[in-house]
């Protein structure tokens, strides 16, 4: 029942986004959209995914959107009448195909659906014996389909290279205040005393929580992606409150640009070591003489690789955007 209510809320927020011309509110509504989606994932027992969606969807992409809007401006022209018909037709056609398909879909939550019969049972029953960590999602993510996650880290790295090529590494020494929404005259730091106090109070726990999520991925929900993103949002908070300049002194972008590569290479190194020791690429059982330990170390190592890459990429992209928003 709960997810039906949440889905209705989703529909309402999407309708609002379609109608809105003021982009700032549209971006905030997208962030609300992600929070709602995260809560739906919670209800559908997808804890890891809810974690990531909340951190990534609501946190990081909203920051990127806001940074882009700070540069591009917040007003967009309403779509003229004639430009509505064509998309409407295409969209309704695709929608009909999807509805036609939904007639044969297995019932929602149906235990006998083919999805649960073929490949999944082995993960559920044997993963404890074969791979080890109780959190099956982490064991599937890191070990069974480790190559997928390797591709995934590749995607993040590609985005990093792309943004770096386009916007530069955010290295220009610019001491600029974060953009105050109303563009009011620059107030001295004194005005921000409340925010600074709260920030000092909150940033430390956030960073520690990120490390907790990183190492705790085997037992509870969590893992490399979530940890990286939470660490990055901690740094964003610091940058937004204290300004880009101190944040760049804390994590100099020129050196930070190495870390995504280091994370990806760490991940690949684990794979290559397993190749050198005789197994196939990313086969952790051969890492140490005892296969179960091998899997354990393997997962820890690649989760760390993923964490480093994702955190470094998100922070670097933020610095690139902030450098441009003069």
């Amino acid at each position: 029942m709960i997810n039906m209510v949440l889905l209705m809320l989703l529909l309402a927020s999407v309708y609002a986004i379609i109608r809105l011309d003021r982009l700032l509110t549209a971006v905030l509504l997208t962030s609300l959209f992600s929070v709602l989606v995260a809560s739906i994932f919670m209800v559908l027992d997808a804890v890891d995914v809810a974690f990531t969606e909340a951190a990534v969807g609501a946190g990081v992409s909203t920051i990127f959107f806001l940074a882009a809007l700070a540069i591009v401006g917040r007003q967009c022209k309403p779509t003229p009448r004639r430009k509505i018909i064509a998309p409407l037709i295409v969209v309704s056609a695709t929608g009909c195909v999807l509805l036609y398909a939904s007639l044969d879909m297995p019932r929602f939550g149906e235990p006998l659906a083919p999805v649960h019969q073929h490949v999944a049972p082995r993960y559920l029953n044997d993963s404890a014996a074969e791979v080890g960590p109780p959190n099956i999602v982490t064991s599937v993510l890191a070990s069974y389909r480790g190559y997928d996650t390797f591709g995934e880290v590749g995607v993040v790295f590609t985005a990093f290279i792309g943004v770096l090529m386009l916007l530069g590494a955010g290295t220009r020494r610019t001491s600029i205040e974060p953009p105050t929404p109303t563009g009011a005259p620059k107030e001295s730091m004194r005005k921000k005393v409340v925010l600074k106090e709260v920030a000092d109070l909150v940033i430390a726990p956030v960073l520690i929580f990120a490390l907790y999520v990183q190492w705790h991925g085997d037992f509870g929900p969590g893992g490399g992606f979530q940890a990286g993103v939470i660490f990055a949002s901690g740094i964003f908070l610091y940058a937004l409150i204290y300004g880009i300049e101190p944040a760049q002194r804390l994590l100099p972008p020129r050196r930070l640009a190495y870390f995504p590569a280091i994370g990806l290479l760490l991940y690949a190194a684990v794979g290559i070591i397993s190749m050198l020791r005789g197994g196939n690429f990313l086969n952790y059982s051969v890492l140490v003489n005892d296969p179960l330990h091998g899997q354990h170390y393997g997962i820890l190592a690649i989760e760390l690789g993923v964490g480093i890459t994702v955190a470094a990429v998100m922070i670097n992209i933020f610095f690139s955007f902030s450098e441009r928003s003069l």
Binding site: T180, T182, A184, E187, K191, V194, L195, V198, L201, V202
Partner: peptide
């Protein structure tokens, strides 16, 4: 505790910015 601190601080920031804007 975390929820209390962050959301109230953000509302404070909102109100202050609006006030600064006049």
């Amino acid at each position: 505790f975390f929820l209390l601190v962050t959301s109230l601080a953000s509302i404070h920031a909102l109100a202050q910015t609006v006030n600064v804007a006049g």
